[in-house]
Amino acid sequence: MTRKPLYCLVTVLVLAALVIGAIGCSSETSGGVLKPEGRLRVATTTSLYDTGLWGYLEPKFEKQYDVELDVLSGGTGLALEWGRRGDVDVLTVHSKADELKFIADGYAAERVWFACNYFLIVGPEDDPAGIKGMSPEEAFKTLYDGGEGKFVSRGDNSGTHSKEKAIWKAAGYADYAALTEAGIAAGWYLEAGRGMGDTLVMARELGAYTLTDIGTFLAFQSDLQLVPIVESGSILLNVYSVLVCAKSTKQEMANNLVTFLTSPEVQDLIADYGVADYGQSPFTSCAGQDEPTS
């Protein structure tokens, strides 16, 4: 009934909140940078993250430039959206058409390619649609016409999804929306709406085909009963580039990251990355050369 306990309780709660909040702020910044403003944020496509490449390069960059690097993993579509909103400083993505539009809209000045590899169509070993060894365009046509075999699409506006649309277009299906609608209705086309890893697992569970980048496929291969079905064709080339967001307030440090990724030392690290784990490197270095073309 006295007023004392009320004040005691409030004081204790406020103190607790402050202490917890203070711990939350101080120990998170043991890297030496006190404010979130002092951190460089890079948004990356999932494949560069899920293969562990960013986890491998991050500490090296932080050490070399004495900065905290925050790596945010999302599909290329999400990464570009973060860039447009000004929430990240640098993007590492892989969808040329989307990148060019991003630049044309004034959100970045240029795209610098620093790694490449290729996409492949993977599927169950018994290859129900009989598309093994075909060109990617023929394989997609057969999937569309044949009615044998399901296809799981990323369906998330990622770089891989953009590539899938490009292959459909090259195969003669210009109206992608109509294609997916018909495919979903017929039951052979499925949209995962998830990252590459989840999509591969979904394809495994459903005994379906999917389009994947070689990096994520290598990283997951041991858990998947999926095998490469179509892996040659110029349209399957995959180029990763780095873009500095125009809205970033940390242009200098952001440019340091571009310099870092394209430096000869890091290019060697990228080319050698993963050989021990996967038997081959998921990435090829390509900075400073002509843009890899199909």
Binding site: G24, E28, G86, D87
Partner: peptide, 20 residues
């Protein structure tokens, strides 16, 4: 909290405080 949003100036997005 996004830079393009009304409270973007606080710079809280992608920090533990934003999660709290």
């Amino acid at each position: 909290l996004s830079r393009a949003g009304p409270l973007g100036g606080l710079g809280l997005l992608f920090t533990p405080s934003a999660m709290v």
